[in-house]
């Protein structure tokens, strides 16, 4: 399932472990305990995902009893076919994908632009604006004032509540600003001598030169957007704007009635419903959970180094 990742960039080849000639008698037992411990820990983290996946493709009567533990039983994919017809699922999938794509593009561009602009010492009262921006990381007005604000701004029950409040992310701005400051100053000066305006310099010169840091910002933003649950809970009551995460939460709470609905739908279609493929609360939950988690499982190993870079850069400033 999970591919072996490329070695982390922070991990340069080095020789801090003792050479084998210096192994002592205690080394072998220690290694056994250590390897076993980490093996168990890795299994503890990985097994739940595996459990969800094998259960979503197993006979539904067996999975409802918790009998599918190590290998899938009675392999079938009908859960995935049937769940597509579940009320709200397709719209939630569209909402989740849209907020992830649009939100990531907006946040990345804004972070890049602001991170660059805050390095422009000519800007009128630059350090004041920068401080006002960064200061917002350290306080929050609280839940109810935020709710009242969103309502006043007309963002409740609007798709844009998923995008606009998240455009300016002080932490990302710090990351980008640090990165731009480390770029050669001559880069921007050369562009300006050639007559490029600020926008032109930014889009033509600076932006193409900061893809590594933007990749880090993008990947974190995308995961945050995809996983976001609280904003739907707080600001959205319109069912057509539910995100996949929120839908999964409601499914977990009302899966029994949903299973009934799915079974009724099958009955209406006149298909023969067997115990192995008829929807149960468990099968619905597992299948939706797999749909929600699969993108993360796939992208995470591929982009692991960007995540790691993000936390490293954050730590430098943090």
């Amino acid at each position: 399932m999970v591919t072996t990742p490329s070695p982390l960039p922070v991990r340069k080849p080095r020789k801090s472990t003792p050479p084998s000639s210096q192994r002592t008698r205690g080394d072998i037992p220690f290694a056994i305990v250590n390897y076993t411990g980490f093996l168990l820990m890795a299994l503890l983290c990985a097994y739940p995902f595996y459990y969800l996946i094998i259960n979503s493709v197993s006979a539904n009567d067996a999975s409802a009893l918790g009998d599918v533990r190590l290998l899938p039983q009675g392999l079938h994919l009908s859960n995935y076919e049937q769940i597509a017809g579940l009320q709200g699922l397709s719209s939630a999938a569209i909402v989740s994908v849209a907020r992830t794509v649009i939100g990531t593009v907006c946040t990345v561009l804004a972070s890049a632009f602001l991170g660059f602009m805050f390095t422009q010492e000519r800007m009128w009262k630059r350090s004041l604006w920068y401080r006002l921006t960064i200061f917002t990381m350290y306080f929050s007005a609280g839940l109810i004032p935020m709710y009242i604000t969103m309502k006043t701004l007309g963002l409740t029950n609007s798709f844009w509540v998923y995008i606009i409040p998240l455009i300016v992310q002080p932490f990302n701005i710090i990351l980008v600003k640090t990165y731009v400051e480390a770029m050669p100053r001559s880069l921007q000066e050369a562009a300006e001598i050639d007559g490029a305006g600020t926008f032109r310099t930014f889009f033509r010169i600076i932006l193409p030169n900061m893809t590594p840091i933007l990749a880090t910002v993008a990947i974190f933003t995308a995961v945050t957007q995809w996983n976001s649950f609280q904003d739907t809970l707080l600001y959205v009551t319109d069912q057509s704007l539910y995100s996949l995460q929120y839908l999964l939460y409601t499914y977990t709470n009302q899966a029994s009635s949903l299973a009934q609905a799915a079974q009724n739908a099958q009955g209406n279609l006149g298909s023969i419903v067997s115990a192995a493929t008829s929807q149960t609360p468990t099968s619905i939950r597992m299948t939706v959970a797999v749909i929600v988690v699969l993108p993360i499982i796939f992208i995470y190993p591929l982009f692991q180094r960007y995540f790691v870079k993000g936390i490293m850069l954050g730590a430098v400033k943090g």
Partner: peptide, 27 residues
């Protein structure tokens, strides 16, 4: 082994609490 352990043990950090609850519920 080290890299695999690292990948697998950091994976849960990137799923939402809703999914964690979902997993808790299944188990």
């Amino acid at each position: 082994f080290r890299n695999s352990v690292q990948t697998l043990t950091t994976l849960p950090n990137f799923i939402s609490w809703v999914l964690v609850y979902m997993i808790a519920f299944s188990l």
